[in-house]
Design a protein around this nucleic acid. Sequence first.
DNA 1: GGAGGCCTCGGAAGG
DNA 2: CGAGGCCTCC
Length: 766
Amino acid sequence: MDKLFDGLNKAQREAVMHTEGASMVIAGAGSGKTRVLTYKVAWLIKKDTDPFNILALTFTNKAAREMKERIVQLVGADARNVWMGTFHSIFARLLRVEGHRLGYPSNFTIYDTDDSKNLLKNIVKELNLDPKVYQPNYLLGRISICKSNLISAQEYIDNEELVNSDKMAQKPEIARIFMIYQQRCFKASAMDFDDLLFNTYIILRDFPDALYKYQQRFKYILVDEYQDTNYAQYQIIKKLAANNENICAVGDDAQSIYAFRGANIKNILNFKYDYPDHKIFKLEQNYRSTKTIVDAANSIIKNNKDQIFKEIWTENEEGYKIRIFRAQSDNEEGNLVAAAIFENKMNQHLPNSAFAILYRTNAQSRAMEEALRKLNIPYRIFGGLSFYKRKEIKDLLAYFRLCVNHNDEEAFLRIVNYPTRGIGKTSVEKLIALAGENNKSIWEVTDDMALLRSVLNQGTIQRIRDFTTMIRSFSVQLKTRNAYDLAKHIAVSSGIIRELNEDKTLEGVARLDNIEELLNAIREFTEKTPELPLEDGNTKKASLDDFMLDIALLTDADNEDDKDDRDKVSMMTMHQAKGLEFPYVFVVGLEENLFPSFQSLSSRADIEEERRLFYVAITRARERLFLSYAENRYRWGDLLACEPSRFIDEIDQKFIEKPSLRGGRHFKMTRHHHISSDNTQFPVSLPANKKIKPLRQAERMAVNPSTLSYDFSELQTGMEIEHDHFGRGKIISLEGIGSNRKATIFFPNIGQKQLLLKFAKLRIIK
DNA sequence: GGAGGCCTCGGAAGG
DNA sequence: CGAGGCCTCC
């Protein structure tokens, strides 16, 4: 037996060795799923499969990168040639080559969700429709679900059922908006995230030579997180695998938590019909968690009706029972969690990084942060505003985008007047209108003097031409300069750096830092990318258009900041925790209406998804699990009374530490759980408009006004403080009492300011 | 064009 | 509560 198989158990080994034909690996939490995938690819390579013939699809870039590194360690650098990446990055690559078949240039832009929403907003405005009725979020959601179910704009218009349901919902124009949106994206040489899948499918469907080419190339196909694939992804895989049927789908139906964004659990349930000769491997031994945690998780998930039978077990020791905290308020919940972390850190000699706090919504992080700060426990929050979503980053990237693709409408609109150059809203609206009337992109309009003269004055025209001339001059240099040089040149010549330099606030300084960080990333890219040979025998460093190829597909996890990985407690949503593990895990906010979320209460399918999310959350824990809930919680500025989550009741009581429940439980079966039938519809009809918000008003409760006394006694005249926005300053005087207490502060960069202490979150420097 | 006031509305999140 | 959009005023 090859030594590659050392350290794999029987089920894992069988799954790895089954390379020919279809197979499905049902991998329970902590059962070594990633291991099977990596070893399977490694085994294929070892058996002399050309890495170029292996396609491995993951859900995150990070997963792909880590897996690739691991495989390289196992079988050598050759493994770098495996086609491994997310669905979106792999198929974006395919579309750069094949997109011309549908009329896209190879340098098409990838619109991110902000671009898509802006475009939709503009379209609604141009059509004079009510922006309240046609909200960008809603529209994009609708369009996205269509495309991920392979329904084109034309098919939508022709589908009576869909059009009628929109009429019933008083939104009859959705089909038209969808169509215009697609046309505008096309005109801008842009694809949104869903187009990357939709268009890939269309090419495989309509161009037999292309289908043949990729079926030949991808002889072995592996798909990770199969339970989270949507219909479009499913169909693409099915097409690619149709010839060889060497497909291996890995997943766990119990961990499907993305149905809300179109993932279809049926893909995993139907695998057996799609590939009748398939083999199923079940990985049921958990290596991660204690018996208590594994069995408690089993006792929860068995409440779900829709699932593939499996029995997760472990040889690990029994371990600690689960402790449950009941808190009076969200703040007290934070204090209990922080205190427990502190105590365990000390008693068990654990590093901060041994702990994770998992919550349902990002808003819950605040109470936890405050509590941890009080005890001086360092923490790191995952999620939040992504680097690539920051305004200054998007601004600079928009310059790059427009250089690479002049037709990129969203990039054009973003920067045509940033930094300000006297091209106002009215002029821009006229450009958009001209583009629409003449079936041109905005850039093409700016190139047509006759058209411009028809609606704009000479001064405006000149300013617009100056702008396009500048962009052109940048574009020319794509050929001559390397990515870093040009990026830096653009950052300076565009005026962005000057603009940010003038902003002396903390925010402004941080923005400039971010620009610098982006430029550093580009420098690194320029240096790391192998040089391309030129016709004249010289070589050429990577250029800015190379860098821009899949920049839209990058996320925060892709630039792991090594400077920030000091020993810290991790805080994140349960969704983000998928795939991770920690010795000590706190799952907080176990309250009805929060977890399970109030939006999920009316359908069984939604509740089951929440339950799977709970399952994911608790199976992150290796040694010890803590659950908590608050009886009162601030939500959207109101103090709400809460009841403990039904999920707490679902855990078999024998796994729970007894004395923690002071006063016993005050709820049992008295609640009414409104359960309607499953509203999953597939593939033509769309999910019905989601439920009406239940109970919000009724839940509201009076706030106890005696708690509103403010005490800022630590602050004194003469102190140096720091303010989020104004930076450091010195307190000149203090006046007023209670909530009216205010300070006069001198900020060197800004001047003198009067601030109400209850709003200004001042930090004392000395 | 930018600052400041008022209003609205809120899920989880990968690419 | 707080972010973001929109409107008004300079």
